[in-house]
Design a binder for these strands. Structure first.
Lengths: 404, 404
DNA sequence: CGACTTTTTTAGATCGATCTAAAACTTCGC
DNA sequence: GCGAAGTTTTAGATCGATCTAAAAAAGTCG
């Protein structure tokens, strides 16, 4: 049976210790763009891996037959299959997908490049993707561009080096439509998720921020508000434009003039706070504030409280995203959910369809928003707005068990 | 191009469209344990991949030379190197790591199997791991066992099929020490993170829950509390035992008797709420409550408020983890951080060390806790406890910018 | 029984890189 | 000018699977 080495006889099977040559010349070069990204290899005393050849020899059949058994081909006789299965169990075989893949193409692997990994919403998105992939026997490489377009480019290249079948990209802030060209992803199947990239006309999955903003704004109008402001950003990401547009659409429908639109630089809590404080200091503030997202809304509510104004009573506040804290905050935040988990699931499914058939026409999947009415808009629970199903003060969407 | 047919001559470069044979017989079998996990392949009209051979031909050198250039070997002459680099740039070469890996062993890939992916703390951990890996040119397969030991086992197998160099495991709830044997990970480098696995004596990285509990308990004692209860769980995860032990150590040191230890089944907000409500209904409640974690603490505070008790004034409440909401909640929660990002970083580093040298002795890295004093313990800001640096009411650990 | 299917098995090429050992080319001393 | 020594380059085997095309075995039938 295959000793492979022409002359050296092989000893037993379990061969421990195996003092391998340590280290490896560490040559770091100038960084030519096509070199394998990363550093010098640090290979090591590999354990003796059981291969198809071992199984074949043990079962007394050919390697090809074993391969057929692995792939559940109907060609092999039941008896032979049993023999081979037994041999695999006996020897503790572990399939080597890279080798298989080298010959046959598909790797059952996809890449997910996130612009941010710690935000709960992206974690949900990841989870949705993983759900679908796991069911299909895929695994995802997941990495984080940290809103850095250059890093994103590098990561896309690295994904390809690893031979992914496709990628889901949640684009970093200044992502241009050429991102895929720049990263040499010839015809790598790709899906953009969560944030639109201007000029990119391929597959996209994302929430309908505009419609969501319309929902919450309509809700405020329905509660009688006529002077509504927007606390939002100036960042170069697509969702901002969509949100602002939705906000304005709702106002226009009711022939209302837009209240002040206050910019935020970073779109975080501190920024929302600062923006709202400035607005309040200017006097004659709106009776309701639509915020870019929940986090900004938290800051806004803090500023209100500081001024002795009660959110939901003196000034209505609404957000966007329905982050976990939204239901926990007091007053609980009225907002709309962008269902990142659903977005993830749809993105994964779309990517797999694309991998399956690269030439199908591009698809855009827009996940509809759901309005979540809580207290910060002033619609006291029980008095429910007409717009949608209200959520209990403490959201129970996550864990089981009776919520108080 | 690449029509795959032997006789057709090869044409130009850009040839779109490419009507490939659709579908693929979907053969689903009985599920023999050694078959490649997953389904039948769905291979497809692969894009024309540029290989070393193409580069070699274009540059007029041998494949071996190109390979040397790729790996930045000092053996090649500068002139040759330049020629090859140019050829690679010209043809748009993308390194094929799977092929390289097949021959040479190390894949620059690791697996991360999480018990839960959506919890912010695990997202932080993931982020920490990604930080380190990215710097070293590694990529991680990330998957989610959903606290399901069987699924976890499957995922570990799948990771090996993909040829990872090692795995970081955040074990699911009922993980036994044999998990790695069961998943046939012979001598796959492995690091267990965040939760201990009883009986597993390999590499481990995790926070020091015990010490953290001691910190917060000591803090409460320092504030004058003498009757302190514990709201905690009964789940079969190691951290619970550690936490309870820390709590008791602190009490013992001050010769205090433990207040009631109330079990929680699920360790979420609703459960904390229920547990606290029961405790309060029983009358004669403790003056301070140490909670299993922040989320439970939120539930507890809700129950207090419902009874007309103000957390931090009538009853002190402390948590554990310092989740993002902790600083946002009113009253802001006194807690200690378990620095999941640091845990992630250390785990990744340790794993890489282990990959580098499989025979080094096992290592246990315990990340020390940091006490975060806010309002829920009753130590009004300004009045700071003696124990540690206090945090501002709104934690500013995340985003930049001036926090109000 | 021999020709002809049909079913099952297999040898050998192949994927795209690395690795080894040897070949080819330089340089140099004498 | 020739062999030794050093520097560059290369042919060919190799990793562990899949794929193709053909061989071997089994079954059919006039």
């Amino acid at each position: 049976m295959q000793t492979r080495k022409p002359h050296k006889p092989r000893g037993g099977d379990a061969q421990p210790g195996q003092t391998a040559p340590k280290g490896a010349a560490r040559a770091e070069g100038s960084g030519a763009s096509h070199a394998p990204s990363g550093h010098a290899a640090a290979a090591h005393g590999a354990p003796p891996r059981v291969t198809l050849n071992h199984i074949a020899a043990y079962a007394g059949v050919s390697r090809a037959t074993v391969s057929l058994v692995l792939r559940k081909s109907p060609l092999v006789a039941d008896e032979t299959r049993a023999k081979v299965d037994a041999a695999m169990a006996e020897l503790g075989y572990v399939y080597n997908r890279r080798a298989a893949n080298l010959r046959s193409g598909a790797s059952r692997t996809i890449g997910l490049v996130l612009c941010e990994i710690t935000t709960p919403n992206y974690a949900q998105l990841t989870s949705g993707i993983d759900d679908v992939l796991d069911g299909e026997g895929y695994v995802a490489f997941i990495t984080n561009s940290e809103e850095d377009a250059a890093r994103q480019r590098r990561l896309l290249v690295r994904m390809q080096e690893h031979g992914v079948d496709g990628v889901v990209l949640v684009p970093a802030e200044d992502t241009k439509a050429e991102v895929f060209d720049d990263a040499h992803c010839g015809n790598l199947p790709r899906v953009v998720a969560q944030r639109r990239v201007e000029g990119f006309s391929g597959d996209y999955v994302g929430p309908d921020y505009g419609a969501g903003m319309e929902l919450v704004t309509e809700h405020l109008i329905g509660l009688g508000h006529r002077h509504i402001g927007f606390i939002g950003g100036v960042r170069r990401i697509a969702p901002l434009a969509e949100r602002l547009a939705g906000f304005r659409r709702a106002l226009r429908r009711h022939r209302l003039k837009s209240g002040p639109v206050v910019p935020c630089a970073v779109l975080d809590r501190a920024d929302g706070y600062a923006a709202a404080r400035d607005l309040l200091a200017a006097g004659d503030h709106p009776t309701a504030l639509v915020c870019y997202n929940d986090v900004v809304a938290f800051g806004v509510m803090l500023a209100l409280a500081e001024r002795g104004l009660t959110p939901g009573k003196d000034v209505a506040v609404v957000g966007c995203d329905d982050v976990a804290e939204a239901g926990l905050h007091r007053p609980a935040l009225t907002t709309f959910t962008t269902d990142p988990r659903v977005v993830g699931r749809e993105a994964a499914r779309l990517l797999l369809r694309r991998v399956e058939n690269p030439s199908r026409p591009p698809e855009q999947i827009i996940v509809p928003p759901r309005l979540i009415i809580r207290q910060s808009c002033g619609a006291a629970p029980g008095q429910r707005g007409r717009a949608a199903k209200a959520a209990p003060p403490l959201s129970r969407r996550r864990a089981g068990g009776p919520t108080p």
